[in-house]
Design a binder for these strands. Sequence first.
DNA 1: TAATTTTAAACAATCGATTGCATATTAAAA
DNA 2: TTTTAATATGCAATCGATTGTTTAAAATTA
Lengths: 349, 349
Amino acid sequence: MKPKKRTTIYDIASKLNVTPSSVSRALNNTGYVNETTKKLILKTAEELNYKRNILASNLRKGESKTIGVVVPRINQNFFANVIAGIEEVTYKKGYNLIICQSNEEYDKEVQSVNTLVNQHVDCVIISISVETNSDETNNCRHLQNVLDHGIQLIQFDRVADELETLKVINDNEQASYEAISHMIDQGYKRIALLEGPQNLAIFRQRKNGYLLALEKHGMPVIDELVIENAWTKELGAEGTRKLLGLAEPPDAIFASTSDFSALGVLEVAMATGIQVPQQLGICGYSNEDFTELTYPSITTIDQYSVNMGKTVANLYFQERENADTVAVSKTISIKPKLIIRSSTQRLKE
Amino acid sequence: MKPKKRTTIYDIASKLNVTPSSVSRALNNTGYVNETTKKLILKTAEELNYKRNILASNLRKGESKTIGVVVPRINQNFFANVIAGIEEVTYKKGYNLIICQSNEEYDKEVQSVNTLVNQHVDCVIISISVETNSDETNNCRHLQNVLDHGIQLIQFDRVADELETLKVINDNEQASYEAISHMIDQGYKRIALLEGPQNLAIFRQRKNGYLLALEKHGMPVIDELVIENAWTKELGAEGTRKLLGLAEPPDAIFASTSDFSALGVLEVAMATGIQVPQQLGICGYSNEDFTELTYPSITTIDQYSVNMGKTVANLYFQERENADTVAVSKTISIKPKLIIRSSTQRLKE
DNA sequence: TAATTTTAAACAATCGATTGCATATTAAAA
DNA sequence: TTTTAATATGCAATCGATTGTTTAAAATTA
């Protein structure tokens, strides 16, 4: 690590006997610069291996050209895909991404968001942690703080509903509704629900879709078939054991929280010799890669995650364009898609 | 988006009738500041919701406290895990991560690396794309360029061997050797190899391990059992069809490139009614989540990816400490672990 | 040819924080 | 009481790029 001094516009300027301003204009292709000198400057810049100091540039211009992203976990398929989508768009625009993970912890989320504000990012993109209870008002102060600093805030997927920001979400209720309808079509009569922490809107919406579908098809809601807080593989398995132990066990389970909990369901079913999908239908949520590979493959809901990332990023740039004219609050809803696989198909076509 | 003006140290200074220097000293806890005024400054900073402008600070200090990471794909399990590991360490040190994906394209990799140099990151962490042929010297100019700018460069997993940098790798040869030895133990006699692009060292090493194991066990190397460039699921499937069509087909396949190609093998086997592991043994590489879930589950090699990320990050900070005294080139090798699952176990214990 | 416009390039301020140096004040030591 | 050291704060330069204002030169028009 030799701390080699970087070439600056001053180096170029003094070498060519012009002023730094001219160099800057030449490099940025703005204002007046003689064609000959411009070429000379560009050539010298190349020769001296000049790289613009973005820090200085951004400081002067008052922007950071950086977007901060906070997700619960980077290495979770859905989020990794969203980030990949965001990156694809922002990279083209010359923006950088700063990635943080909250590890599903409220404190780390707050800390991460504060760091980003500190960094003067131009925009914060976030999917809140499970601990971030959006009902208790104070718990979203860190997000309000982002707005107070004049920084754009975009929430996606797991959003704090009452906060007036840009949002990109899935139509969870609709997806959920379709999943249940499909299961009813397949002749399942007692459909159980594994629900997630109800402080997160997405899980409330998925439950609503479930309730709505039952109602529309004239089926009763049976309380004992609704299992709270079953959002990991282990909790999903636990819930399943409880359900299967009922006097009247369900003939289908909708693991509305994730494919991981659906996997938990499947494993318990396999272990206890219950036939899927004949005796028990299973539907997950998220279309994780593995759902296609299990035996039987798992019916699930695709959230178009990469596409969601692109939508988020595009939304930012779009809002930036007409920054003055536009309302603060806006929600884009992406319709997810039910992917029907073996785990719920008990009727032959 | 009201373009609210941010509070600066000047605002605090003028409000309290002190100089910006004093404010700076108070906030940084450096130099002499009267205890009373310091408290006052801190309190006022809090009140005015002051956040240090990192751009200005870093510009002045000549560092960016930012680390750039370039990987082929963010949303690939292995890389997502490595990034998660890196993030965990760097976050604690107050560093930011800029993430880029090369999409396995040489051009985008070069562009990404240049962007990072442009950003004056303190360190570039990279796993090169498959197109980055490390043999053709010019193809690594972008990496040399990083070094030339006095920026630390750390390569991991897919490294350009001949470049003298810090490296964190797996002992691919050893892992490969163990995998083949295990298969031989299980009584497989004709073990095929799906190999990856040989311009990447990792794939050469894995092949070496294969060759070495055969040799050590006195088994012949059969050319027609080595399939070049079979590193995606599709290519893996294609290679498998070719292998199974041989006059003397193999009784085991080592998909040394990835679990994805192993999956391709498995699917072809299933489709043609070949029993795994009885008639055909299969071993993958990387321990992707799904390898545990397929039927039968796939034997594979765990690379300790999150841990690898942490190692990389720690290596950076460690080298930074003794920046002057230390050699430029250094390699840390992590021993991966063979995970034996159903797809290669045809002997009952 | 004089007046006007266009083009070229220099000058200097600015973005916000940091820091070496200088000055002033206070406390401690001689 | 004087000298010396410690403390507190101000001043001004600096990091590197950008940009509004000026001045100067060249090109165009009247």
